[in-house]
């Protein structure tokens, strides 16, 4: 019982802070760190949820309604994120605002800004501005937190830059066009499988085009998406003998890697092997 009292006290402290909501997990660690000791930060949708087709539950809407500030991608990631922007005007911060976004023809805007550490620097600054706008008294704490986050992001950026600069392969062949920002910011080229819908319904013609492109560029591997079982990956492996490497695109917590930074380091280790970096 005596042990319970400090735990309950700590719990009450965390809940007494204003709630900051982050729409998806990839932004969670960065935003949480910046709001540390001033806000209680929660992520809205589960890390493994399908961003494109997610439907908000009543408890999700309740959280949005209770939150003091809501951070969304600003792309938006799906109808649900667009709806959040519509119903919570005034407390929404678009993390991609002011950023030059990649437009991919008929597919629309590429939302995967978090896969480039350089873009996350801009995301962190945007989150800081959002926090300061509703908590000017906490500016000093928030600024200190931002500095810490920026240091970590700049370290990660340096690690990505130095590693990817030494890769023999300069092309990222991927089954889902998620690596556009990473490729653009680190001097690589993305080739991807496109189709009727970015998450499925790939036509045989498109599949053949993709395989031919991989072969013509002398590549022997394809990057697939972690946590998203793919028929395409198994076809590429069994029918064409192409190796597959999994990239954790949605920053889903996995064994030993639970936060944005460790998962991004894991992704870099995958790229290091696939792209034959020295």
């Amino acid at each position: 019982m005596i042990l319970l009292i400090p735990i309950l006290f700590l719990l009450s402290l965390s809940y007494s802070k204003d709630l900051a909501l982050v729409s998806v997990y990839p932004f969670y660690d960065v935003v949480k760190h910046i709001g540390e000791s001033r806000f209680y930060t929660e992520v809205l949708i589960p890390p493994k949820a399908d961003y494109h087709h997610y439907e908000l539950s009543v408890s999700d809407i309740l959280k949005v309604s209770k939150a003091e500030i809501v951070f969304v991608s600003g792309v938006p990631l799906g109808g649900w994120e667009q709806k959040i922007e519509e119903i919570s005007k005034g407390k929404v911060v678009r993390l991609s605002e002011g950023m030059e976004l990649i437009r991919m023809g008929s597919i629309g805007v590429d939302p995967h800004i978090w896969l480039s550490p350089k873009r996350m620097v801009s995301v962190a600054k945007k989150a800081y501005e959002g926090f300061v706008s509703i908590d000017p008294e906490g500016k000093e704490t928030l600024r200190r937190n931002l500095r810490e986050v920026l240091e970590k992001l700049e370290d990660l950026d340096r690690l990505y830059s130095s590693t990817l600069a030494r890769c023999r392969v300069r092309v990222l062949p991927v089954v889902h066009p998620a690596l556009g920002y990473l490729a653009k910011d680190y001097g690589l080229e993305q080739v991807y499988l496109s189709g009727g819908h970015v998450h499925g319904g790939i036509s045989p013609k498109e599949m053949l085009r993709f395989v031919k492109e991989i072969e013509s560029r002398g590549l022997d591997f394809v990057l697939t998406i972690y946590g998203q079982p793919s028929k395409i990956a198994s076809i590429l492996r069994s029918e064409y003998g192409i190796k597959t490497y999994e990239i954790n695109v949605k920053i889903i917590p996995m064994d030993g890697n639970v936060d944005y930074f460790s998962i991004m380091e894991y992704n870099l280790s995958v790229l290091r092997e696939a792209l034959r970096c020295m």
Binding site: H52, H53, I61, L77, G79, K83, S106, G108, H197
Partner: peptide, 16 residues
């Protein structure tokens, strides 16, 4: 292409 995620939201609606 590109807006199927918005369209599917209409299948079950959300009155809230």
């Amino acid at each position: 292409k590109g807006f199927s995620e918005y369209l599917f939201g209409y299948l079950f609606g959300n009155i809230l």
